[in-house]
């Protein structure tokens, strides 16, 4: 039973992370990964030069660890890996990587889904899209809140 959580200040490679995660398995049958990539265009189609994520001291990492621990407690998973970028992220680069491992696939799927929903609404980041002529703060959408709400029973 282990959760490994990292706040990354530089670009990371999701394939490498999946490789390392898989390498560390102890016989689990199911591995799910999610990677979120920075988009090159805003919802209105305007080009985005960079996504900038701000974090706050130890609180951001602690919020990520709390979410991972919740997932470990709630789902029948044996391992999870969470990596989240902070700072300036170019379009196409990975923002977040989540991997989960379990004996049977349902738990791995649900745990990864849960972790992402929680990261979207509760992880301590503030993000903005920057283009040459504007910057725009991004908050969780009503869809993100509805997704997170699914896990409340």
């Amino acid at each position: 039973m282990s959760a490994e959580v990292t706040l990354a200040t530089k670009e990371f490679d999701p394939a490498e992370l999946l490789g390392a995660f898989t390498h560390g398995l102890g016989g689990e049958g199911a591995v799910v990964s999610f990677t979120g990539h920075a988009r090159g265009a805003a919802k209105d189609g305007a080009a985005i030069e960079a996504l900038v994520l701000e974090s706050y001291r130890g609180v951001t990492l602690a919020s990520m660890k709390a979410i991972a621990a919740d997932a470990m407690a709630r789902f029948d998973i044996s391992r999870c890996r969470v990596v989240h970028r902070t700072g300036r992220i170019a379009p196409g680069e990975a923002i977040v990587f989540v991997a989960t491992a379990s004996a049977h696939r349902r738990a791995a799927f649900e745990a990864a889904d849960f972790i992402m929903d929680r990261l979207k609404t509760e992880a301590v980041f503030w993000k903005r899209e920057e283009s040459p002529d504007r910057k725009r703060w991004i908050e969780p959408t009503s869809g993100d809140h509805a997704d997170a709400q699914r896990w409340q029973e």
């Binding site: 994520l53 706050y56 979207k120 503030w126 991004i138």
Partner: peptide, 10 residues
């Protein structure tokens, strides 16, 4: 002390 507006990761 810090003030946090609504957060959003991912």
């Amino acid at each position: 002390v810090a003030l946090f507006p609504p957060v959003s990761g991912g």
